Each structure stands twice: as structure tokens, then as C-alpha cells.
Amino acid sequence: MRKKRDLPTKDCATCGRPFAWRKKWAKVWDEVKYCSERCRKERGRRQADG
């Protein structure tokens, strides 16, 4: 078992905060851009308003 600090991380495209790899993202980690569903939805709103 890996420690959380040893997992790969990325920065969220919306809020810029770092987030760690999750098991449910194992197959699509290269495509994950947002730390949460809320940030994913917020990104869509910002582009529509802009």
C-alpha cells in the first residue's frame, strides 16, 4: 500500500489547488483535469459567461 504523500498529484484547472490520484481515476488519470465535480461544473459556467 502506498502512502498518500507518495501518490501522483496534479493542479486543478479551475481552482489551481493540488489534488492526489484516486483509485477510481486509475484508468483515466491522464484525462483528469479537475479536483472535484464542483470545479468541473464551475469551469463550464465560466466559459459560457466569458
Rank of each mutant, 00 (worst) to 15 (best):
D6G: 09
R46T: 01
A26K: 15
C35S: 00
G16F: 00
D49I: 03
R38G: 03
C35G: 03
R45K: 15
A13E: 14
K24C: 10
D11N: 11
P8S: 02
E42P: 02
R17H: 12
C39D: 03
W25L: 10
R43M: 13
E31Y: 01
R45L: 15
S36W: 10
P18G: 01
T9C: 06
R38L: 07
K10V: 02
E37H: 02
F19N: 02
D30G: 00
A48L: 09
G16V: 05
F19K: 01
M1S: 13
S36A: 04
G16C: 01
R45Y: 15
V28N: 14
T9H: 08
P18V: 00
T14Q: 11
D6H: 13
D30K: 13
V32S: 07
A20C: 12
T14D: 04
V28W: 09
K4H: 08
W29F: 00
C35Q: 08
K33A: 05
R22Q: 15
R2G: 09
K27A: 15
C15S: 11
D49L: 11
D30T: 07
C35V: 03
R46E: 12
C12T: 04
E31P: 02
A26C: 09
R45C: 09
F19P: 02
K24L: 04
R40H: 13
K24S: 04
E37S: 11
R2C: 05
F19A: 10
S36K: 06
F19G: 09
C15L: 00
W21N: 07
W25S: 02
K4N: 05
K4S: 11
W21F: 15
R5D: 14
R40N: 12
D11R: 13
Y34P: 06
T14N: 13
K41C: 05
R46L: 12
R40E: 00
K23L: 10
K24H: 08
A26T: 12
A48E: 15
L7R: 13
Q47G: 01
K23W: 07
F19C: 03
R45A: 11
K10Q: 09
A20D: 13
F19S: 06
E42W: 07
R2D: 11
K4F: 03
T9Q: 12
A13G: 08
G44C: 04
F19D: 03
P18T: 05
K4Q: 13
A20M: 08
W29T: 08
G16H: 02
M1F: 10
E37R: 11
S36H: 06
Y34C: 09
W29R: 02
R5S: 14
E42D: 11
D30W: 09
V32C: 11
D6Y: 00
G16Q: 04
G50M: 03
R43P: 01
W25C: 00
E37L: 05
V32H: 04
P8F: 05
K27S: 13
E37C: 04
